[in-house]
Design a protein around this nucleic acid. Structure first.
Length: 909
RNA sequence: GCGCGCAUAGCUCAGCUGGUUAGAGCGCUACAUUCACAUUGUAGAGGUCCCUGGUUCGAAUCCAGGUGCGCGCACCA
């Protein structure tokens, strides 16, 4: 007996070493894959978010893709599977923000952009390492040499290029549109990131001139000056479209205009409504249709604006009862329905209640025609004008992209048909900055221009001075410990920005800060006396005496003004110094280091900041910098100083480029030529719209091709009761824990068997345990064969006739399994292999030849052994894509000895 | 409201384009076990294939209607 075979298979003892050997072989990389290849086969891994760890859904995804990849590799294709991770802008940022708040009770604004981003990046990097380890642990045969990240340099280039090309074609535009504003996260969220929650609320019927209108939100109604009814509503036939009338309203009389529009449902309430276009999507559409005025009522923090009169400044939640009270007093409140079934829109990200707002955002226009770049899209000719919507429908309708399971194409069509312009800007910090720059003087816009230098405006950190000392110390106090810490933090955030030069004021604390930045970045420092000022916003145009008086008034002690300048002169001198350096150092990356007030003043002068922005202390944190770019000169006004759009792109914008960007686009790489379009895109059906549709959109426009030929959708992994696995329910099963306990093979198989495409998978630990037993069974078959394996026996023997039936039986199964894999019916393929091996090969074939092995003559022994080894090798090949580790382990012990350095992984199917 | 899916053994599901007695895993029952494997083997119980009607020589499978679940999208002033 071969003593190498332990009695049972211990996955832990083998899996890591096997993976390492595979990796070292280089065969995951198609460029190093030996042999001639008749075709290329490629899959790009849907990049997991760097928000923590992988869950069972990821494990299912990896299992399915690895099976397909390993099958193709064994079948002789030049096979590529590209790994990567997704920065997942909003999800990752939110996670770090939550942690930050929990631990330090701080918000991202407390830290400032650079410092906060550094924390996010640290978190993302740690998640990345965990995720990579997990993927390897599950046996994923990914080509790590091509690993990508949605936010790395080459993906950034893809994003910028795509943005520019789409902008030039007019497919990306900037516009004032109604967006879902999350007042809690202080960002817009996409339509796909909001959900409706049922809620019981109060519904108010209010007298509006001769009409009664209904509303659940009286606090939005101040500016309602249009009253809308259905054109065919007989009750209101006497009112004509465009007719005006005076009505008594919340804060006095108002001129109302009659609007006839089919959006008003005669069945609902009184059939009459007033509209609030700034804060309601449907009202906005009505207003657009009839070209009506729109007025903002609620600010971005949820407070009422001056239009609300006496209620201005109140938060909407507090304002509502007060307004209702006033309506009552004015006898305008007709009726109240306390049991109104209402729905509120909440953000799925942070749970804040969405307040629709009209905001200037970037959009992708899905209804604008563009010129098709190639003939590669079936049914669309090169040069033909199509819209993104038409193109997206066409490639699936024509069958050029096949969706499995098929019925999802109906869902896809339905979604596309209802598609609206895609808002791609987000008020987040983590993500791809929008590659649009605005001229600081005339506000003209440049997309993805040539950049000369990056200029950062930074202020020094905190110092110690009390009231008494302040007057004295104002000029030359040192940084305190906290100030030094702030400086270090800022310096660190600037570390990767290739700073060439620090232009510092010669104030002591600015000097100290500059020196700290110098230590970290190595940049040269020059001192500029012109920046040596302490300026506070709100002193505009004042003379020296006035400033002193105002200062005394504000702070209760005298300001120490060292020379005899007015504020205006001070400003001019600072701006002059700035302009002088700008001219001289335009090509350098520069940090301007001075007093916070000076920076605010500069912002006002060179960047048109409003006095409010300039005055606000939150305009610039001690650890934060404001970045400007020196660009080729502005066509309109000749200025060189530009400010980049502070928003970032929706994470799906970069994800939508994934198949292209991982293969090297926009460069013309060999990978792009050899592996695009990718063969299969495999992912969960839950991101059909988020992701798949967007890849089709981007690729169709940018290179006039499809991103992939087949879309395979797997189901979601649920617990044994069919519930979604989640942390809050505590019903999650950790893939890594299962792999440790039962082996990666068993974990993988449990996610495949019984999981038809597109169907949810109900998973229990029992199921995984069941497949662990199967791995043991395979091991023991090998162990059994090895017991009778005898190198002295002749290899060329005549097989008894009855053995032919065994070969035939195996070949039938092999054919069946091959067909099933080709048809993406992996669950069937796995099931068939499983049953054949266990209940035919082990239970029947082995049992029947046992006597020959044990008691036969050498001829009979040799024949039986040869037959068993033949078929068993076939079996582990069939099974390898599904259970790569145990099959490879067995292969190495039983078969590899005959060849040099070979792997089952690359044996011929 | 618009659209999609599911209903088969106690549980979780498979059953492709209609073709003898409807399958698997887990669970259950009984027996076996010095045997490569107790992480095993053998045998067994267990099903009006949700309901009604239709097409057909023949329906779990195709069609229509109904019932009950699940999901996606839109949206209520």
């Amino acid at each position: 007996m071969n003593s190498e075979f332990e009695k049972t298979y211990d996955p832990k003892a083998h899996e890591d070493a096997i993976y390492r050997n595979w990796e070292e072989s280089g065969f995951f990389n198609p460029d190093k894959l030996p042999g001639k290849h008749k075709e290329a086969f490629s899959i790009v891994l849907p990049p997991p978010n760097v928000t923590g760890t992988l869950h069972m859904g990821h494990a299912a995804m990896i299992a399915v893709e690895d099976i397909i990849i390993r099958y193709r590799r064994m079948s002789g294709a030049k096979t590529l599977w590209i790994p990567g991770t997704d920065h997942a802008a909003i999800a990752t940022q939110e996670k770090v923000e939550k942690e930050l708040y929990k631990k330090e009770k701080k918000t991202r604004h407390d830290l400032g952009r650079e410092t906060f981003l550094k924390q996010v990046e640290e978190f993302a990097s740690a998640s990345h390492d965990t995720i990579v380890h997990q993927m390897k642990r599950l046996g994923a045969s990914l080509d790590w040499s091509r690993e990508a990240f949605t936010l790395d340099e080459s993906r950034s280039l893809a994003v910028k290029t795509a943005f520019k090309e789409m902008h030039e074609a007019g497919l990306i535009y900037r516009g004032d549109r109604i967006v879902n504003w999350d007042p809690k996260l202080q960002t817009t969220v996409s339509d796909d990131e909001v959900e409706w929650k049922d809620e019981k609320s109060v519904f108010y019927y209010i007298q509006y001139g001769p009409f009664v209108i209904g509303t659940a939100r009286p606090e939005t109604k101040f500016g309602d000056k249009y009253v809308v009814m259905h054109p065919n509503d007989e009750r209101y036939a006497k009112y004509k479209h465009g007719e005006t009338l005076e009505v008594e309203w919340i804060n006095g009389r108002i001129t109302a205009t009659i609007i006839k529009d089919e959006a008003a449902d005669p069945e609902f309430g009184t059939g009459v409504m007033t509209i609030t276009p700034w804060h309601d999507a449907m009202d906005f559409e009505i207003a657009e249709r009839h070209n009506l005025d729109k007025e903002q009522i609620i600010d971005l923090k949820g407070k009422l604006l001056p239009i609300a009169g006496e209620f201005a400044g109140m938060h909407i939640t507090k304002a509502r009862p007060a307004i209702v009270e006033k309506l009552k007093e004015k006898k305008l409140l007709v009726k109240v329905d306390e049991e109104y079934a209402h729905r509120v829109t909440v953000s799925t990200r942070g749970g804040g209640i969405i307040e629709p707002q009209i905001m200037r955002q970037w959009f992708v226009d899905v209804n604008k025609k563009f010129e098709a770049k190639t003939d590669k899209l079936q049914g669309i000719k090169k040069g033909e004008m199509v819209t993104l919507k038409e193109m997206m429908l066409q490639v699936v309708k024509s069958g050029q992209i096949k969706i499995i399971p098929e019925h999802f194409d109906k869902t896809y069509f339905h979604w596309i048909e209802n598609l609206r312009d895609w808002c791609i800007s987000r008020q987040l910090w983590y993500g791809h900055r929008i590659p649009a720059w605005y001229c600081t003087s005339c506000k003209d816009e440049k997309i993805n221009p040539l950049r000369k230098g990056k200029w950062f405006f930074a202020r020094h950190g905190e110092t110690d001075f009390n009231k008494e000392g302040r007057q004295q110390g104002w000029l030359d106090t040192s940084l305190n410990e906290k100030g030094r810490e702030q400086a270090r933090e800022m310096a660190h955030a600037l570390k990767n920005q290739n700073i060439d030069l620090i232009i510092s004021s010669d104030l002591k604390r600015a000097k100290e800060t500059a020196e700290i930045i110098h230590e970290v970045t190595g940049a040269e420092i020059i001192y500029e006396k012109g920046f040596r000022e302490r300026n506070h916003g709100g002193y505009e145009g004042m003379l020296k005496e006035e400033m002193i008086a105002k200062y005394q008034d504000r702070f209760g002690y005298d300001i120490n003004i060292e020379n005899d300048e007015s504020y205006k002169q001070l400003e001019d001198r600072v701006v002059e110094a700035f302009e002088r350096h700008k001219k001289k150092h335009a090509h350098k990356n520069v940090v301007i280091m001075t007093h916070g007030g000076t920076i605010r003043m500069l912002m006002k002068r060179i960047n048109n900041w409003t006095p409010e922005q300039a005055l606000s202390g939150s305009a610039l944190k001690n650890t934060e910098t404001i970045q400007f770019d020196i660009l080729e000169e502005c066509k309109k006004c000749g200025n060189h100083l530009f400010l980049q759009d502070s928003d970032t792109l929706d994470t799906w914008f970069s994800s939508g480029l994934w198949t292209l960007s991982t293969l090297g686009w926009p460069e013309k790489t060999a990978d792009l030529k050899g592996f695009h379009p990718t063969s299969v895109l495999e992912t969960g059906y839950d991101i059909l719209f988020f992701w798949i549709a967007r890849m089709i959109l981007m690729t169709g426009f940018l290179i006039g091709d499809v991103p992939f030929k087949t879309v395979y959708l797997h189901g979601l992994v649920r617990d044994e009761k069919g519930r979604k696995m989640s942390k809050s329910l505590g019903n999650g099963i950790d893939p890594l824990e299962m792999a440790d306990k039962y082996g990666a093979d068993a974990t993988r198989l449990s996610l495949i068997v019984g999981a038809a495409p597109g169907n949810d998978i109900k998973l229990s630990e029992d199921k995984i345990r069941g497949y662990r037993n199967f791995a043991t069974k395979i091991w023991n078959i090998a162990r059994f064969i090895s017991m009778y394996d005898d190198p002295t026996l002749s290899r060329s023997v005549k097989m008894p006739k009855e053995y032919q039936a065994y070969y035939d039986g195996f070949n039938d199964i092999k054919k069946l399994v091959t067909e099933k894999i080709e048809a993406f019916e992996l669950h069937e393929a796995a099931n068939e292999s499983y049953h054949y091996i266990w209940h035919t090969f082990a239970d029947i074939v082995i049992e029947q030849v046992k006597p020959a092995l044990q008691n036969g003559n050498s001829q009979e022994k040799a024949a039986a052994l040869a037959m068993l080894k033949d078929i068993f090798l076939g079996c582990i090949k069939l099974l390898h894509p599904f259970m790569p580790f145990v099959t490879e382990a067995v292969y190495q012990k039983l078969f590899a000895g005959e060849k040099q350095k070979s792997f089952l992984m690359v044996e011929a199917w």
